[in-house]
């Protein structure tokens, strides 16, 4: 095999994509030709640098959620689809993640007032992390609050507010029912570029509690209680953005008429 022909085959030789006869001809040539051997070394080094250094991008969670929402909406016409709990294997994995979160010795950085109920914060955070895994973000996937809000009827003893915040850059992704502190709670899910924001709420009689904020494991948690409704917001978006989001949420809440649980009245 000539030098020119050998050079043409070196790249495929590196990948073991040459037919056996050609591969052995290349191998024989490389033993006897220092120039082609050095050429081969160069290609080998290039390929190994590319394969080690070029790593896949991680698709944003919001994209995953958007795709699921689009498919489910197409699947069911315009009807929102309730996901049945058929992803059994994930439940076991989810439990493992909860244990990992709880046992990871989280540091508790409270800014402002006292940190609201650490145990609840832990459960809320675990729910947020669990929601980022495949098929766990939403039970009802829709960008339309008129689909999301009624979906909670009959599943919960109260109805969360679902303001539309698309114009402010927080598209609605859907909702789900989750369990926090031993009771079913409403979770309304919003997106912010590639990030996910989970908004938890449930009825909780008692005095109003002002906004407090803490960060754990790179996530920000915000908590407040008003008019007998407990609110938690969890996300990894930048803190100023999350504050803006909470302010909009409260405004939208007031504008749309707050829905309060019967027990609070």
């Amino acid at each position: 095999m000539s030098c020119a022909v050998t050079r043409d085959h070196l790249s495929a030789y590196v990948d073991s994509e040459l037919p056996p006869e050609q591969a052995s001809e290349v191998a024989r040539h490389l033993v006897s030709c220092a120039e082609c051997a050095s050429e081969y070394e160069g290609i080998l080094e290039t390929v190994s640098r590319l394969q080690e250094g070029l790593v896949p991008y991680r698709a944003p969670d919001v994209l995953r959620a958007r795709i699921r929402a689009a498919i489910r909406e197409e699947q069911a016409g315009s009807e929102p689809v309730a996901r049945r709990s058929r992803y059994v294997p994930w439940r076991a994995i989810a439990a493992a993640v909860v244990i990992a979160v709880v046992s990871s010795g989280v540091t508790f950085v409270a800014t402002g007032r006292r940190a609201a109920e650490p145990a609840v914060a832990e459960e809320v955070l675990a729910s947020h992390i669990r929601s980022l895994m495949p098929a766990h973000l939403t039970d009802v996937s829709s960008n339309n609050q008129h689909n999301v809000k009624p979906w909670f009827n009959g599943r919960l003893d109260f109805s969360p507010s679902v303001p539309r915040l698309d114009d402010a850059g927080f598209p609605l992704l859907g909702g789900r029912v989750d369990y926090v502190h031993g009771r079913p709670v409403a979770v309304v899910v919003y997106g912010r570029r590639q990030h996910v924001i989970n908004v938890f709420s449930w009825p909780a009689p008692g005095r109003d509690v002002g906004l407090s904020q803490e960060s754990r494991n790179g996530y920000t948690l915000m908590h407040w209680r008003r008019d007998g409704v407990e609110h938690w917001v969890v996300s990894d978006v930048a803190v100023p953005d999350l504050r803006q989001f909470v302010a909009l949420l409260e405004q939208g809440d007031a504008a749309s008429g707050r829905t309060t649980p019967e027990t609070a009245r």
Binding site: L10, S11, S38, G42, I43, R49
Partner: peptide
């Protein structure tokens, strides 16, 4: 595929300055 990949790798090899030799 074979020839395009070989040429693309060659371009990257030069851009990254791997193997000082000039491509012939």
């Amino acid at each position: 595929v074979m020839s395009r990949l070989a040429r693309a790798r060659k371009r990257l090899q030069q851009a990254l300055g791997i193997g000082a030799r000039e491509a012939s």
